[in-house]
C-alpha cells in the first residue's frame, strides 16, 4: 500500500448532488474526470494518487542502491526492469492525478518541499542483497494487497491505472520471492542475509497498511466513496496470513516470535509494529527520510538546465516550423 493516512476532505456541496453522486458509486458506476464530483472527493483522490505516484518515484532509490552491485547479469537485468516499471507506474499515476486538474510539476514540488508524503517503507535502507528480494516479495506483496481491490475503485482513471500496475507488481513480487529463495537456500552467509532482511523489513512492511483501524480517522468517507476498499487491519491480517507460510517455506525464522496460528479466528495472531516508530517516520524521522528527499531534490535541481534546455529547443523548433508554413 503506497498511500497511508490520506486525509479525506470534508465536503460542502449541494446535498442533492452529493446524494446522486453517492448513488452512482453505490451502483458501481465509474466516475470519469469530466463528471461532477464533490470537491472533497477530488482533493482526497489527488492526495492519494499523488502519494502513490511519489512512492513509486522515491521507491527507485532503495532499489537503485543495489543495481550497480547486483551479483549476476540476470539479477541486474531483472532489477533494472523492475525499477523501470516503477518509474512507469509513477508516470501513469501522475497522469491519472492530472485528469483531476493538478499538474505533475505541482505534485512534484509538493513532494520536494515536504507538503506531500510517500510511503513510509521507502525511508528504510536496503543493506544487503537479500533486501532486494525482500523488497519485491514483502513490499510489493503488501502493495498488491491494497492495489488489487483498488482495481475496483470508483474513479475510472485510477482504476485503469491499477489494473495495469497490478499485472506488473505481481511479477515483481514473484521475482522478489525467487531472489530471496535463492539466498535462503544458499550458503550460510546468504541465509544470514535473507534472515537479516526479513527481520528488518517485516515490521516496516506491516506499517505500509497504515495505522490500526481504531486510530485510522480517515477511513469512513473514503470507503463510502470507494477510494478505499478494505480497512487497514483487514489488509494487514491478509498479508500476515499469506506471508507467514512463505517464511516457513523458506526455512527462515519468523521475524516476530508472537506469530501463532489462531484456530478460533482462522488467522495468524501477530504483534503490531511499534506505532510510535511509524509516526516518527511519517514526521520525517525515519532512517532515510532526509537522504531520500535530498536525493530527489538534487536530481530535480541538477536537472533544471536539462528541462529548460529541452523546452527552449521545442519552442525554437515550433517557431521554425511556424515560420516555414
Amino acid at each position: 500500500m503506497y498511500a497511508q493516512m490520506v486525509q479525506s476532505e470534508a465536503t460542502q456541496d449541494d446535498p442533492e448532488k452529493l446524494a446522486a453522486f453517492q448513488a452512482r458509486i453505490d451502483a458501481g458506476e465509474k466516475i470519469e474526470p469530466k463528471d461532477w464530483m464533490p470537491e472533497g472527493y477530488r482533493k482526497t483522490l489527488i492526495r492519494q494518487i499523488g502519494q502513490h505516484a511519489h512512492s513509486e518515484i522515491v521507491g527507485q532509490l532503495p532499489e537503485g542502491n543495489w543495481i550497480t552491485r547486483a551479483p549476476t547479469l540476470e539479477r541486474k537485468a531483472i532489477l533494472l526492469a523492475k525499477v523501470q516499471d516503477e518509474a512507469g507506474h509513477g508516470l501513469y499515476l501522475y497522469c491519472a492525478a492530472e485528469t483531476m486538474g493538478v499538474s505533475r510539476d505541482e505534485l512534484t514540488e509538493m513532494l520536494l518541499d515536504g507538503r506531500m508524503k510517500y510511503s513510509s517503507i521507502f525511508n528504510y535502507p536496503t543493506l544487503n542483497w537479500a533486501d532486494i528480494g525482500a523488497v519485491g516479495w514483502l513490499v510489493d506483496g503488501a502493495a498488491i494487497m491494497n492495489q488489487v481491490p483498488l482495481q475496483r475503485t470508483s474513479f475510472g482513471p485510477y482504476s485503469r491505472a491499477m489494473i495495469r500496475i497490478c499485472k506488473e507488481e505481481s511479477f515483481h513480487a514473484r521475482q522478489g520471492f525467487d531472489a530471496i529463495r535463492k539466498m535462503a537456500e544458499g550458503t550460510p552467509a546468504q541465509k544470514k542475509m535473507a534472515q537479516d532482511a526479513v527481520n528488518r523489513l517485516w515490521f516496516p512492511a506491516l506499517m505500509m497498511f497504515g495505522p490500526s483501524d481504531k486510530d485510522s480517522v480517515h477511513s469512513a468517507q473514503s470507503m463510502a466513496w470507494k477510494i478505499k476498499i478494505n480497512t487497514n487491519d483487514e489488509l494487514r491480517q491478509k498479508f500476515v496470513d499469506q506471508t507467514v507460510p512463505q517464511i516457513e517455506f523458506l526455512g527462515l525464522d519468523l521475524p516476530d516470535p508472537t506469530i501463532k496460528w489462531n484456530e478460533e479466528r482462522g488467522h495468524y495472531d501477530y504483534s503490531d509494529p511499534d506505532w510510535s516508530e511509524f509516526f516518527e517516520v511519517i514526521k520525517g524521522n525515519g532512517p532515510c527520510n532526509v537522504d531520500r528527499l535530498a536525493a530527489r531534490n538534487k536530481a530535480w535541481d541538477d536537472g533544471a538546465w536539462v528541462r529548460d534546455g529541452l523546452l527552449a529547443h521545442a519552442k525554437k523548433k515550433a517557431a521554425r516550423q511556424h515560420a516555414a508554413e
Binding site: G64, T68, L73, A77, L80, L91, D302
Partner: peptide, 25 residues
Amino acid sequence: SEWCGHAPVLEEDIALANTALDLIG
C-alpha cells in the same frame, strides 16, 4: 544504470533504465 532514480525528469529515468537494460541484455 548509475543514474537510476536521479535523472532530470521521469521520462529520462525510464529511458536510462531501458537503455541500461538493453545493454546488459
